[in-house]
Design a protein around this nucleic acid. Structure first.
Lengths: 293, 293
DNA sequence: GCAAGGTAGTAGCTCAGCTAATGGTTTGTG
DNA sequence: CACAAACCATTAGCTGAGCTACTACCTTGC
């Protein structure tokens, strides 16, 4: 069978001019080289070199074969170099900080497809609040992190986005509205309010401000969306939650859009020094390509 | 060692999606394919495919490797196809008609270098007069032939060219001239003349006409240049011979340029139907490239 | 004529790589 | 839930392709 060695040999003979020199550059015996060449020529059915006088001179046919052989060896070398740089990237670890909701809703399929394409890069995901994640990004505890509504200058990859809705018991007065218009912020004011953070304290605070709520309106502050739903269902108050959390807990509840709408987006950002980490770079670039497709 | 089989395998797996299918397209066992892939991945130091669920999905690294592997296989296929068309051209015979002087002076190095580059094409050279060669070209007895001063429309390859000189005994009156000017045709007229053909009767006739010789002036007609030289040396007459024949026989002789100069060129032409012969085509093209370089 | 340098041929051995058979894991199904 | 189907990995064992060492032979240059 034809081996890469054959092509290496052919190219080497063409370069060196004799089988002997070629053979000991490749690291085999003159005899072996002679046999290999003979075999190759036999398989191709025509002579590649003219064995005239002191040198091996390529035939016309030989010359075009040599050209292709060179190209093949180039591709081979290219593969080797790809492999080497892959080695450097090697079995790497990458730490990712994110919020519970993103980890459970958005990341799973992204991480699994990333794992398929880069099996040598291990991604460990850390769950934290928005404040913690900013902290970890700052002190290099994580390589990449998911933040809410990233500022434009952080050059983030937007992983997803959802809109906030007002959550009311079905029995609530506002819940009867059927004209499809959103609920204005002012309508919300002075109703007992349940502030759900979903792990994002800072963001929740700013949300409350956006809505024009005063602290006295806030009846309860809870972490999980489920708790908030339960409280709303019991009539303790009304809440504002991301739309994507709804499917899990909508019995006895009514969700209405806000007017003007409020959205939150999840952005993946790199820790300042993580630009140096090849793995982080690959991860970042991959998710960027995935989400914009 | 890495084999072409490995690359074929990789490409095939990528196309088929599973090792099993790939392996039996290539014609090996699933087991062998699995081992080969494992070996290849080990050598490259990274996984090429993710063995997740039912399919083999290329990793990012794998994908670029596959790309190069495809290119290598393409080159390989290209070489195979070159070999096949070389087969068709195969051990071929090619008949070439020419004059003695061309065969002995110009062709040897051309033929030997052609033989080096196309060892599978055997060239047999036939010697003949110019009239015979035209005849052979016409009745397909030869594939290619050398003719003198080929007409432009025959699209010939000019193999060489030499100029005619007047040949005189050193004792001849005209031979004393040292001013370097050529001998005019009229000066030649009415001297006893020796017509040497060198095998080219037709050409010799037209040469005689060009010189303004009348048949009565022609003392002797001989074939070989050597004979003509001998006769001139003996004072039988003067002759006009190609410059390139001189080195062999210039003792006791003086050669002077003609004014205006007369040249003859040797042109290689194909027999009408030889355009179909691959070998003749290759030969023609090769000499064309050689002589214009 | 002889040494130097080159290619081709031969015998023999070793190991790379293939096959066959088996086990394990995931997926789809009555 | 068990069973069948599809697929990959692993093992043991064998075969032959291809390498080495050695030799023969040809060409060239001194």
């Amino acid at each position: 069978m034809l081996n890469l060695t054959h092509w290496r040999l052919v190219v080497s003979i063409s370069d060196m001019g004799t089988i002997s020199h070629a053979s000991d550059i490749i690291g085999m015996t003159q005899s072996g080289a002679s046999q290999a060449l003979a075999q190759l020529e036999h398989m191709l059915g025509a002579a590649l070199f003219s064995r005239s006088q002191r040198r091996m001179i390529p035939t016309a046919f030989g010359e075009s074969v040599i050209e292709h052989a060179r190209a093949m060896l180039n591709h081979h070398a290219h593969i080797r170099s790809l492999a080497n740089e892959q080695q450097g990237l090697g079995p790497a670890r990458l730490t990712l900080g994110s919020f519970p909701s993103v980890i459970s809703r958005i990341l799973p399929k992204l991480l699994s497809s990333f794992r398929q394409r880069y099996p040598d890069i291990e991604v460990v995901a850390l769950e934290g609040t928005d404040k913690e994640i900013e902290e970890w990004l700052g002190n290099q505890h994580i390589d990449v992190g998911v933040v809410l509504n990233p500022a434009a200058e952080r050059d983030a990859v937007i992983l997803g986005c959802d809109t906030w809705v007002a959550l009311l018991p079905v029995s609530h007065a506002l819940a009867r509205r059927t004209d499809g218009t959103g609920i204005g912020f002012s309508e919300l004011a002075h109703h007992p309010f349940i502030l759900a953070t979903g792990g994002c304290h800072v963001h929740a605070q700013s949300l409350a401000q956006t809505l024009g709520l005063e602290l006295t309106d806030i009846r309860v502050t809870v972490q999980s969306w489920e708790s908030a739903c339960a409280l709303v269902r019991e009539g303790i108050g009304i809440a504002v939650v991301p739309e994507s959390t709804l499917p899990e807990c909508k019995r006895g509840l009514r969700a209405l859009p806000l007017e003007p709408p409020i959205k939150r987006s999840f952005g993946l950002v790199k820790a300042p020094a993580a630009a140096y980490s090849k793995a982080a770079d690959v991860f970042f670039q991959y998710l960027s390509a995935m989400t914009q497709a």
